[in-house]
Design a protein around this nucleic acid. Structure first.
Lengths: 191, 191, 191, 191
DNA sequence: TATGAATGAGCCTTCATTCAT
DNA sequence: CATGAATGAAGGCTCATTCAT
């Protein structure tokens, strides 16, 4: 259909790959063009500048990550099952895309306006996690005296750290058993 | 002592400030020289290149963080007490050296190669945490069936996320009670 | 007639406007196409390149100016009357086609090569003036020892300077009396 | 002395040559650097941008032209002698530098502020000429009924046109006799 | 040893031109 | 014929690094 929109997405996807690999400043427009299989000038038919492309790429990535995550959280499953799926989804996403969880930090190079937008987007993800925790607690799946905010930190932080180490350092795919185990630690605690 | 070594440290400290503020690629050697109160050429008398300076600065920062953390971990205290102190130390360090958070942030706009290099340095911290977990487990403070690696992810990730949100987003200092609560969540789990 | 020729002229007229407004190097083919109400590629159906279009536009502009001037010069009038009419025509032309002044201006930011090209075209106008001087001299209207070439410089230069200052600097139309006065100065000299 | 200022002037002189030859838009910073015998980056140690360099070059050129002209006009000589010297000076200056008389038109590419400055500068030259005419008239060198403004246009315009044709088109130096002849035409008129 | 003026490789961006539709 | 999306060569500017002093 909208061939224009399709091409825009293709460029964004190329941008995800290249920015992810090189970071903002070392990613060359040349690389992105090559990755997208188009001429360098063509990018400027769709995006105003390198910064604009980066902005749009961030928006696109966070939104698509958020949507996938929300879908999992809205399923009628136990909190344990959902957390495992979240962990798995998170890992898969990071495997394909840029280190999304920490993307909020990329904002250094962004306009103040964009930074605010990204923080807002990221906050939505935090809220999704918290909603899930609250709901699970309301249904008696989690202990009654649990602080929902801190629990959310625990979930997000642990999963993030876990994936960062596994994917980032060891560069191998995660096995199913890993996700179950990490969720198990979160739920049961260390004691 | 060696006036040479002193000057080296001064340059590193200037580098910490400037890299923290601008990130690797946007930090100019000019800025660092100005911050250190020396000529631009002088930096090259002490460091081979911008990259070399960055590496040495990362090593220096992580090492100073590591030393403080190790001291806490080596104390004869319960795992709970030590974790609370770690959380507090982490928060204080970031409060004073806001640079460290920034540093962490900068990594994200760096190339994958550079990110990996930093992450590798950080692995020392991870090892300290893991040692502490192992020791606590050996002494029966933590449950016997605990996966030490995953437990370490949980501790580090949760504390990091917790501090990031509190300091970075809300911009207020943490109270004593917070550290106890977050450690409580880690230890007891969510169930 | 030939619809093709009409379109050619339309493009040239658009080119006059755009080149006048922006100068050669800053005029974009996009602008000219937009001004002519056609597609960018269409220009290349009628002109070989931007340079070619510029050349043809210069020729067209100078030619239309030349024709009007020649008509005046060919009249059976005294040299004084003709000079006054030339001055008036020149002023009117520049008033209507402010472009022409602009055109003259553009030349100055052009390369020496391009300036020469334009100046060569303008030489035709010079020849007309010189013809008029020669004829007037032959008929005893001008003094016998007059250098025709220098006299031509005096006429063209004075009128040009006069109009430039009046229109360009003061931005008001010229009154009839002005033209008589300036021609008077030219003819009588300063002594 | 101020070696810095000397180098600044050297760059400006290189800029005069290159801008004069190629025009603003086709002059490459590379050319100017090469002409000045320095590296491209060095220009930016002395000027903020290409536009800034152009601005400064224009100011420098007009001012030095104006000073030389004023010196001639202030001499205790007859109006005829002075006009001859002006013509000669003008020709020599244009031989070495950019087409100064028409430089006011270069302003297309300049900031509004700069345009105003140049017009002001150029107006000073016009005033110098007018002063000289008034003074000559007061001393009875020029006829009493002469319009000073128009006389000034006649002088400036004729000389400009004269030089433009001779130098610009024929590319040969002017002989002494030429200047005397053109001034003769101006003073005696065509009748 | 310390300096900072000079350098030039490298990159974002523009725009004349092409060509598939 | 007409179009406008795509192209890539070209140029202004930055900044890590060098080296004469």
């Amino acid at each position: 259909m909208s061939s224009r929109e399709e091409k825009r997405i293709e460029i964004i996807q190329a941008a995800v790959n290249v920015f992810s690999e090189y970071g903002f400043d070392r990613a060359k427009m040349d690389y992105i063009a090559k990755e997208a299989g188009i001429g360098k000038g063509t990018i400027y038919e769709y995006f105003e500048s390198k910064e604009d492309l980066f902005d749009k790429m961030i928006q696109y990535s966070i939104e698509s990550f958020r949507i996938g995550l929300k879908k999992i959280m809205d399923q009628k499953k136990s909190i344990e099952e959902k957390l495992i799926k979240c962990s798995r989804y998170n890992a898969e996403f990071m495997d394909k895309h840029l280190d999304m969880i920490q993307m909020d930090m990329q904002c250094k190079v962004l306009s103040k306006e964009m930074r605010t937008r990204i923080f807002t987007e990221m906050a939505v993800i935090y809220e999704h996690y918290k909603d899930m925790v609250q709901q699970a607690k309301a249904q008696g799946e989690l202990r009654a005296d649990l602080d929902e905010t801190l629990a959310t930190y625990c979930i997000m932080g642990t999963i993030e750290q876990f994936i960062k180490h596994r994917i980032f350092l060891k560069r191998h795919s995660l096995m199913e058993v890993d996700h179950q185990a990490i969720v198990n630690v979160i739920l049961k605690g260390l004691l």
